[in-house]
Amino acid sequence: MNTMIDVLRDPTWSPYVVGVGIGFLSWLTFLLSDHALGISTAFSKTAGMIEKAIRGPKVAKKLYYQENKLGIDWGWMLVIGVFIGALVSARISGTFQLEWVPSMWEEAFGSNILVRLAVAVIGGICIGFGARWGCGCTSGHGISGTMQLLLGSWLSAACFFIGGVGVAMLMYRIL
């Protein structure tokens, strides 16, 4: 029993254990929910629902939200679950810590919060825009689509890393 608790408290599991776990989880989502794991659609629905609350029902008439209906669904609950699961994991392993600027960023670019947030927000906007344009993110394409051997998902996963590696190298090696 003690070892079980020690395992749950351990802040770092082997990437292979985590990968196999996510693979098993995919079996269950396909079998029990007829869904593949994917995160970014929920962000799009939330953005649409917030805009609809502010600007009224005409927002739901936008072509994108007609093709991708607004509302709380399986994928939306999945993201709430990710938050709770990650929070419980961090709490029991004692890794929870409020932080504005990651230490690796601070060493390279200084501790100015606004600089970090400006880059993070521009990055986030690109991610949200690109995930909808490309129809998926690192979960939907990078894990769920690739495991089904979809050509489009392998292409997208390659592009995620080409873009990401390029920007990371530019920021940390050249600037």
Binding site: P102, W105, V119, A120, I122, G123, G124, I125, C126, I127, G128, F129, G130, A131, R132, W133, G134, C135, C137, T138, H141, L155, S156, A157, A158, C159, F160, F161, I162, G163, G164, V165, G166, V167, A168, L170, M171
Partner: peptide, 14 residues
């Protein structure tokens, strides 16, 4: 294009 824009954002946000 979608996934390259995503990748650029991925590098900026982390």
């Amino acid at each position: 294009p979608g996934s390259l824009i995503f990748g650029i954002g991925f590098g900026m946000l982390g």
